[in-house]
Simulated scan of single mutants.
Amino acid sequence: MQLTKMAKKTRSYRKMMCLPASPPAPALRTWLRLGLFVLLCLGIGQALEKKVVKSKVGEKVSLPCCHEIPISESLHKYRVYWQKNITDVVLAYSEGNMISKHKRYQNRTEMDPWNLTLWISPMEILDNGSYQCVVQRNSVVVCDESVILFVTADFSKPNITAEVSADSCESTEMVIMCSSHGGFPKPRISGALNNMSVEWNATWASESSLSPYNVTGKLVLNVTKDVNITCSIEYNGFAKSTSLLLKKTNDCFVPPVPPPYNVITASIIIVITFILAITLAARYLPRHVCSHCCKGQNSVEEGVKDSMKAPLSDKGTAETSSV
């Protein structure tokens, strides 16, 4: 509590330093003071800006402090506090000795005795957050500065699956699923269809805000030709992508269109008539031909008989004339 009160006093003191210290003087002196006032405020503003450090789970990270102990001095003259989110003391040094360390950081943290850098290894997702380095000398706050630590856990390579939900000669309807797991922080899922962006219907799952995330994206497409789809998982400046070729069903068989009912009826009548005509022709035509053949044969036989009778009559006539 004493440390927090002193830090607040130091901040208020810094704000007071940004106010003009004397009433207006001549024009030149006024402009000079105004310039110094602006430079001082800019310098303090930059000093109060929070630094940002990024790291991945399992790596070793260094968090810089706002003060470096001169060579002529030593850590014994200082009190150093590294705390997270103001409430949890990561570790603390007094007169050169460690006086406190958080149990979650046991065997994972160390501090450089000169530049007061805090080293954390290996990184965990729970290490994500804001850290403050507070340095005191003779009970006076020398510096108080924050560092934002962003911890990243890699997601698995996206897995894409495609299932045909409906198919026709014109198009193939597919349900596309893209999933990835085990990463941090909460990711963004994006995609492209033949280099044109598409929006996924995404869902996320995580036990807490500081736990690994699982993400799943769903997309329904009508595929009219072979296309390439890409699914990308983006998180904290990193990205992982997977592509899949979606093929249109090519073996589309178009069944023949049946003829109208009237055409079928007319065709049946024609076929039946044709069959009856052939049957009748086969039954009556041979008899007609045979009758003609028989008549011709009888006439020939009669002619032969007549020719044979003729000489006999001649002979009879001759005999009669001789008598």
Rank of each mutant, 00 (worst) to 15 (best):
T4E: 11
K5D: 12
K9N: 10
R14I: 05
C18L: 08
A21Y: 01
P26H: 06
R29F: 01
W31N: 04
L32K: 09
L36H: 13
L39P: 04
L40V: 09
C41I: 05
A47Q: 11
E49V: 00
V53Q: 07
V57D: 05
G58P: 02
K60A: 14
L63N: 07
C65N: 06
H67Y: 15
I69V: 08
E73L: 08
Y78F: 13
Y78Q: 03
R79F: 06
V80S: 12
Y81N: 00
K84Y: 06
K84V: 10
N85R: 04
T87Q: 07
L91N: 12
Y93C: 04
S94I: 02
G96E: 09
I99R: 07
K103T: 08
W114S: 15
L116G: 12
I120F: 10
S121T: 15
I125D: 11
L126K: 14
S130I: 07
V134G: 12
N138D: 15
C143G: 07
E145M: 05
L149S: 06
T152N: 13
F155N: 03
F155P: 00
K157T: 15
K157Q: 14
P158R: 04
E163L: 06
S165I: 13
S165E: 12
S168R: 05
E173V: 02
M174N: 02
I176Q: 03
M177V: 10
C178K: 03
S179A: 13
S180V: 02
G183F: 02
R188S: 11
S190Q: 05
S190A: 10
G191Y: 05
L193I: 03
N195D: 14
M196P: 00
V198L: 08
S206T: 06
S206W: 00
S206D: 01
S209F: 01
L210R: 06
S211F: 01
T216Q: 08
G217R: 03
V223M: 02
D226Q: 10
N228A: 11
S232N: 11
N236H: 10
F238A: 15
S243Y: 02
L245V: 14
K248P: 09
V254Y: 13
V257D: 06
P259I: 03
Y261I: 06
N262V: 07
V263Y: 07
I270F: 10
I272C: 11
I272W: 02
F274E: 11
A277I: 08
A281S: 15
R283F: 13
H288D: 07
S291Q: 14
H292V: 11
H292R: 11
C293H: 11
K295I: 05
Q297K: 10
Q297H: 09
V300H: 15
V300Y: 14
V300P: 00
E301S: 05
P311H: 03
T317F: 13
E319L: 15
E319C: 12
T320R: 07
S322Y: 09
S322R: 11
